[in-house]
């Protein structure tokens, strides 16, 4: 769980870097984003990485489910009165629940964009800011913007809120998961562990926050 979890943290960073391009407005932003989208779907190196990511998600999910089932079996009779808040964080005890939420989000999210990009009928970008493109590009940029535009999608607000909420789940999942992964991999040192824990907390707040801002930004800028 630790190794795949940490790899998925890396993936989040890459994904976020791509998403942040959505802040670039106008035709320039559109072109850059669509070129990036093409690169991500065609480059062989990225292909390898993306298969690794699919595998990680799958493994992380399946292993997580197996562990959760074993853990339930390990305590057939529950305590009549239990006070776990005295000794552990809420997130750490609810990783399976949080993980399930995250997984549900991933399914929704992939059907919204990833599936569109691969198999959907999506508009094509023919010309950029400097005139006609050598080769037309799949216009994912327009799809994304449209998805969060109340004028085009009646559920845009719900979508933006859902995406933001999913980021909260990811934040809690990371709050515990980041430092837990290091512990599972055997990294615990009086000098470095506080650093890892600090970095984990920063990571779990900053990354999901940035992710969450994007759909809200797209919605509110287009709704206005």
């Amino acid at each position: 769980m630790g190794a795949t979890g940490l790899f998925l943290c890396l993936f989040l960073v890459g994904h976020l870097a791509g998403n942040l391009q959505l802040f670039i407005g106008g035709a320039e932003g559109q072109l850059q984003f669509n070129e990036y989208a093409k690169f991500m779907t065609t480059n062989p190196a990225v292909k390898i990485l993306s298969y690794l990511t699919y595998f990680s998600i799958l493994f992380h999910t399946v292993d997580g489910i197996l562990l959760a089932v074993e853990n339930r079996k390990a305590r057939p009779v529950k305590y009549a009165y239990n006070k776990p808040s005295a000794n552990s964080s809420w997130a750490s005890r609810n990783m399976a629940v949080l993980g399930t939420l995250v997984l549900a989000f991933i399914v929704v999210h992939m059907s919204n964009f990833w599936a569109q990009m691969h198999w959907g009928e999506i508009p094509v970008q023919i010309s950029g800011p400097d005139g006609t493109l050598d080769e037309p590009l799949k216009d994912l940029h327009t799809v994304v913007l449209g998805f969060f535009n109340p004028a085009e999608n009646s559920l845009a607000l719900a979508a933006a809120l859902l995406y933001a909420f999913a980021m909260v789940a990811i934040a809690f999942h990371l709050w515990h998961g980041f430092q837990s992964a290091w512990q599972s991999l055997g990294v615990n040192h009086p000098r470095y562990t506080p650093l890892i824990k600090g970095a984990g907390k920063a990571f779990s707040v900053v990354i999901p926050a940035l992710f969450a801002i994007i759909p809200l930004y797209l919605y509110f800028t287009q709704a206005a």
């Binding site: 562990l67 390990a74 776990p84 552990s88 837990s180």
Partner: peptide, 15 residues
Amino acid sequence: EGFGNCSNTGACEVE
């Protein structure tokens, strides 16, 4: 023996 798995909640160390 049928013990569960460690998810690093840290409760054990506290208690």
